[in-house]
């Protein structure tokens, strides 16, 4: 094990292998670093910044930043938590998040992140209330982009695992959104069995399986009793819930 070395997360000594990201090493050590765009089984893309940590005093995204030997990583400091709260708030305010009527409520990672960070929805930022399309053309699947946080998990799942390239980013800046590779969803070769449609892929209530909404009663949903953390994300466990 000559390629393994030590570093520190919030004062805890952690072992890492060369080439590992901070996130990978932390996961293996059982230390949870919050995340939204990163999920088990997909290439990290480092876009949501919720996994922000400080390594040797520099602010970096843990899912894409390689561990530096002997480095000191700050994960749960007040400063870092503040950044994460702001990021999650902005994601909330940027889309149309009506949790009371959302099929994903209770199993949504954005919402769960809000709970974990103790956000009581302060109004520091304006609610943008954008006009965003809902694509219900497909017999089995709905794409409601009102709730999209542009994490790109559907894009990577469809491209790298399903090998279909159904989803892609379109537009730039504030107009950036997720589009489908066709006139609408019904015009693509998407299928319920795709990883892109798996409940564990879309962290929010954007990709919806028709006829499967609200399957767990309130109080028994994924994040009703347990905060989002390690070991709560495995695809299998979530799909069967």
């Amino acid at each position: 094990m000559s390629d393994s070395f030590k570093f520190e997360i919030d004062g805890v000594e952690v072992l890492a292998r060369r080439g590992q990201s901070i996130m990978q090493a932390a996961d293996e050590a059982g230390i949870y670093i919050p995340r939204l765009c990163d999920v088990e089984g997909l290439e990290p893309q480092g876009s949501c910044r919720v996994c922000v940590v400080k390594q040797n005093g520099r602010v970096v995204s843990a899912c894409t930043q390689p561990v530096i030997e002997g480095s000191i990583v700050e994960n749960e400091s007040e400063e870092i938590l503040g950044y994460r709260r702001d990021l999650v708030r902005m994601l909330y305010h940027e889309g149309n998040h009506l949790c009371p009527i959302c099929e994903a409520s209770g199993r949504c990672e954005l919402q769960a992140m809000g709970y974990r960070l103790g956000i009581t929805q302060a109004t520091k930022y304006p609610y943008l209330q954008p006009v965003r399309p809902v694509d219900a053309s497909h017999p089995d699947i709905v794409l409601d982009t009102n709730r999209c946080i542009l994490c790109g998990r559907c894009i990577r799942a469809s491209r790298d695992i399903d090998k279909k390239h159904v989803f892609e980013y379109v537009g730039r800046g504030i107009r950036k959104r997720v589009g489908v590779n066709g006139y609408n969803l019904a015009d693509t070769d998407i299928a319920l069995s795709d990883r892109a449609i798996d409940l564990a892929t879309c962290p929010v209530g954007c990709i919806i399986q028709k006829g499967r909404g609200f399957f767990a009663p309130i109080g028994e949903r994924q994040f009703d009793k347990r905060p989002i953390t390690l070991g709560i994300l495995p695809v299998k466990e979530r799909s069967e819930q």
Partner: peptide, 18 residues
């Protein structure tokens, strides 16, 4: 409550009326 905090269900009208 959600309506007082962020508009709640009535606020849907803002996003469909542009």
């Amino acid at each position: 409550g959600q309506c007082a905090v962020m508009g709640g269900l009535p606020v849907m009208r803002n996003a469909i009326m542009h």
